[in-house]
Design a protein around this nucleic acid. Sequence first.
DNA 1: GTCTATAAGCGGATAGAC
DNA 2: GTCTATCCGCTTATAGAC
Lengths: 215, 215
Amino acid sequence: MPATNRLAALASPSQAGKTRGGEANVERILDAALAVFAVDGFAGARIDAIAERAGLSKPNLLYYFRTKADLYLAVLRRTLDMWLVPLAEMDTQSDPVAALTGYVTRKLEYARDYPEASRLFAMEVMRGAPILNAVLENDLKRLVASRSALLTRWMEAGHLPRRDPVHLLFMIWATTQHYADFSTQVQALTGRTLEDPAFFAEARRTVLLAVLGRA
Amino acid sequence: MPATNRLAALASPSQAGKTRGGEANVERILDAALAVFAVDGFAGARIDAIAERAGLSKPNLLYYFRTKADLYLAVLRRTLDMWLVPLAEMDTQSDPVAALTGYVTRKLEYARDYPEASRLFAMEVMRGAPILNAVLENDLKRLVASRSALLTRWMEAGHLPRRDPVHLLFMIWATTQHYADFSTQVQALTGRTLEDPAFFAEARRTVLLAVLGRA
DNA sequence: GTCTATAAGCGGATAGAC
DNA sequence: GTCTATCCGCTTATAGAC
């Protein structure tokens, strides 16, 4: 059962069976909701703010999503797969070093291109993951177990430096997502972001040196 | 001007000039507030919940802190120095490897012993650091600049592997605070926490291997 | 200093016209 | 499908007795 289905099973969002124009609205609402939830969290988000950003009235937004919780769930659902896919695809590269390098690079690209998605998940996990807990304990846990076994095999074959594979994954997540989740701090301290190609390359090089022992 | 004074200048908390019993209450309120703010964020926190946890009534809490914002500011203020001190003290160790090892170890101990403080700052930064921005742009920026210069000297002298010093600091912060900020996820995936000495040692070893190229 | 009672306002959600 | 108007609960904050 893919993660999307698991989340969908938790509560079906109400946008099923809408017209073409309505579906375009749903997309605009979800975009706006991601932007607001990712900054203010679930509790701090205001439906007015999401509606205004999406260009419609508050009751009209509530026509598409009956409650704030429904909307939050729909945003999480739409964003979740994108977040799990890179790790699942890590073994498609045959060379271990290339596989890990590609994974780190992709994670940094996601942190650069979808910082709001990163912050949304960070906030959800930090408040105890009341919605995502089932996904963490099942889908992600299984995925991490299989990827850890793969990393262990690569290390034992001498292709990668020996590390605890789970802590290594934590390190990759922490370092790459840091540039999205703490971008306010990164920018305050350096004046730069991952949008700057040179800065992106510096970050990538530092993470790869840490993960592989070389860049 | 130390960070505490800078924050204090933003708004003086109202607990000045209270009696002995009152000061004990202030401490209990601040402890309770940290616990609640660190999970629910500023917007999600309920004064009732903080008052109940501190063992007094809501109006009584508001006798000590006139508004929720005052209380939030006071909690940030009390927690801030603890968060900056380890980095400031990094140069007291003469040996570069020992200094960095000590810094990483202390950061992990803080993540283990004060996870709520870590989450409080993470949430504040993730919502754009409306309160802490001045501290980031001044005190922390200066501190990072001086520590970066120190790390660069150590690297050029051949005591440490060459890295971008600022990205190296980001990596240390990200990896160590990850165990506090994402402890829900860490526990869901491994069933363990930094309270477990063996788990702590594994995390420490992984971070040190990344930072120093050896443990 | 601490409480009960209450004011004041915000924000999610609904009613109902168009 | 979209709007204006409105309800209602919840939460901050205050009033005022003890």
